[in-house]
Write a protein that binds this DNA or RNA. Structure first.
Length: 583
DNA sequence: CGCTTTTGACCAGCGC
DNA sequence: GCGCTGGTCAAAAGCG
């Protein structure tokens, strides 16, 4: 039962996670000692709080204090004792009754019970009704000032609680809606792509198999980066088998071949603040170090694929675990010592589907080994579970940002600003876009607070404070609503406007999400250990699958979530893909 | 027994 | 051309 309660709470209120996390509701079960201890603390706090207005969210616990008033007189020890009783856990569900009985009995012994009652109330807040609390407030048994004050406080807290509860509800609904829309749009997008592919008769466009859509996206991204997007006939043309770029092999007209190419160069300079490689040798295309394959090469298709895979999204998060939980299944296929870092770099590939091109590298930061750097490459060629989808969408969306950012400096910035002010007013994470790196890379930094990393990252182009998931979501929205056009002749500014012009409900949702995210960010920021679960947390919430909370808890608890093998803690175990590669 | 991880070998790109 | 480095392969070992 106890166990169940914890779970039920989580699953029932994904959002509750934000507000109640500090309270640690999960562990109620039989773990009396711990719980008691916690409650003790809270009770003491409450006692203290009665005298001086307390802080914020933890108040639900403080409700307990209100009960003190029932015992009215001496606070401290007695109360503690009561708290220690903690039997209340067993009675969680019968709050009102217990409360009444307690009041009636007035037994010292019951003192604790009443407390329990209160405690239960707190729990109930999370789970179900709060009627019991109300009864307490209503019945003004003790006339003394203390009690009144306590009641007042309780009333305030309750009101606050109700408000938050309502807000949670709204947010939940909003998220559900967003999720639904998202899924619908994704389906739409896939369908559209498929159609487009068929129309153009592009073999590369296969939805399944190695070449898959994923690569395409990155190709698009790549192209976008090159500023060819506008010219590219949507995705299909981007397949690029025989692009105009191929025109001049030697000089590489990739970008130049297209009219926009010129614009692109300009933008690059502006945006990037100048990539040495690019500026110095525009001929090399957008790949600074020439490491990036060129489409003009003979093996267009292969290179295309390779190119697509070059776009990367890096996530920095503090975590003791071997890997961050992203909801996907991974198989380690290699490990190597990388230059300049004493920590080995591990290579993983997605095993959720045969031939899935997605790879990721996991390595600890040399400077700060508590920071785990996970770099994703490629897009999944298969459906993803909600929790995995969140991360995937985040990364792919972040990657897309490269695209939008590269279109034109002004536009890119505008997009960033737009995202920043519209979606992430208070978020603390940072996104760093680095097109100058060997590979175009977007870095989502979950380890940073407000401070810009810019200076830590030599080649960062520009940064935008953001919360990855929301960021991704926003970008997803972008792509949903205008993604296709984007690949043709949409410019970032337009995209932004489109985004802003999203159906009212969407807009409202974003705002709501923004607020929620802000709250979440604050909470997370307060708990360093929690950052590792940030993406998954937001993800799970947005994904609307309550089950994810488990992941969150796991991460949070630093229980390493046994991600060692799959990076996936939850239910995914069943899918043990046999062969990860088409050997 | 099957799957995953480990780990040395191999390959490709790049700089000198 | 050679060496360095990053990335991948694949046989062997480990694990449940």
């Amino acid at each position: 039962m106890a166990k169940g309660s914890g779970l039920s709470i989580d699953s029932a209120d994904p959002f509750g996670f934000f507000q109640h996390r500090p309270i640690v509701l999960n562990s109620f079960p039989e773990d009396n000692n711990r719980n008691i201890h916690k409650w003790k603390l809270s009770a003491m706090d409450a006692t203290t709080l009665n005298r001086s207005p307390p802080p914020t969210i933890q108040f639900p616990l403080n409700l307990n204090c209100s009960h003190h008033r029932q015992e009215s007189p001496p606070p401290s020890d007695d109360k503690r004792m009561v708290i220690d009783e903690m039997d209340f856990f067993a009675k969680k569900t019968h709050d009102s009754n217990d409360a009444v009985s307690t009041d009636a009995g007035k037994n010292d012994f019951h003192g604790p019970t009443s407390l329990e009652f209160n405690v239960n109330t707190g729990l109930n807040l999370l789970t179900t009704n709060t009627s019991s609390d109300q009864s307490l407030v209503d019945d003004g048994i003790s006339p003394n000032v203390e009690d009144k004050r306590a009641k007042l406080e309780l009333a305030v807290l309750r009101a606050e609680y109700e408000r938050m509860k309502g807000e949670n509800q709204r947010l939940k609904e909003t998220l559900n809606q967003v999720t639904t829309n998202y899924n619908a749009l994704q389906m739409h997008l896939v369908t559209f792509k498929h159609k487009k592919t068929e129309e153009n008769g592009m073999p590369d466009a296969k939805v399944e198999g190695k070449d898959i859509v994923v690569p395409r996206q990155f190709m698009d991204l790549r192209l976008a980066t090159n500023g060819n997007i506008a010219d590219e006939n949507s995705l299909s043309s981007s397949e690029g088998r025989s692009h105009e770029r191929s025109g001049s092999p030697g000089t590489n007209g990739e970008v130049k071949a297209s009219k926009e190419g010129i614009v692109f160069d300009q933008d690059k300079k502006e945006l990037l603040g100048c990539k040495t490689g690019r500026e110095d040798s525009p001929d090399q295309g957008w790949a600074p170090n020439s490491k990036l394959p060129r489409f003009n090469s003979p093996k267009d298709v292969d290179q295309t694929e390779a190119t697509m895979r070059k776009a990367r999204v890096s996530v920095r998060a503090r975590s003791e675990a071997a890997m961050i939980t992203d909801g996907c299944q991974w198989r380690k296929y290699g490990q190597k010592m990388a230059k300049g870092n004493p920590c080995p770099r591990a290579y993983y590939r997605c095993t959720m589907a045969n031939g899935c091109p997605v790879r990721k590298q996991v390595q600890r930061c040399a400077e700060d080994r508590t920071i785990l750097i996970t770099t994703y490459e490629g897009n999944h060629s298969h459906p993803l579970p909600p929790n995995a989808m969140a991360m995937a969408s985040t990364t792919s969306s972040a990657a897309k940002m490269l695209l939008s950012g590269s279109m034109s400096s002004a536009d890119g910035i505008m997009n960033s600003n737009f995202l920043t002010r519209t979606l992430l007013p208070c978020s603390s994470s940072m996104a760093t876009i680095s097109a100058s790196a060997p590979f175009p890379t977007v870095t989502l930094d979950l380890t940073q607070s407000p401070n810009p990393l810019q200076f830590q990252r030599p080649q960062s182009q520009f940064q935008i404070p953001l919360l990855p998931q929301i960021f991704g979501q926003a970008l997803q929205n972008q792509s949903k609503f205008s993604g296709l056009q984007m690949s043709q002749d949409m410019d970032p500014a337009q995209l932004s406007h489109q985004l802003q012009a999203l159906p009212t409900n969407q807009g409202g949702q974003q705002n709501s999400i923004s607020d929620t995210v802000s709250a979440a960010t604050a909470a997370i920021a307060a708990d360093p250990n929690f950052t590792a679960a940030l993406a998954a947390a937001i993800t799970s919430i947005i994904g609307g699958s309550g089950a994810h909370t488990n992941n969150i808890c796991g991460n949070n608890a630093n229980s390493t979530t046994t991600t060692s093998s799959n990076g996936n803690i939850t239910s995914t175990t069943s899918n043990s893909n046999s062969s990860f590669q088409g050997k």
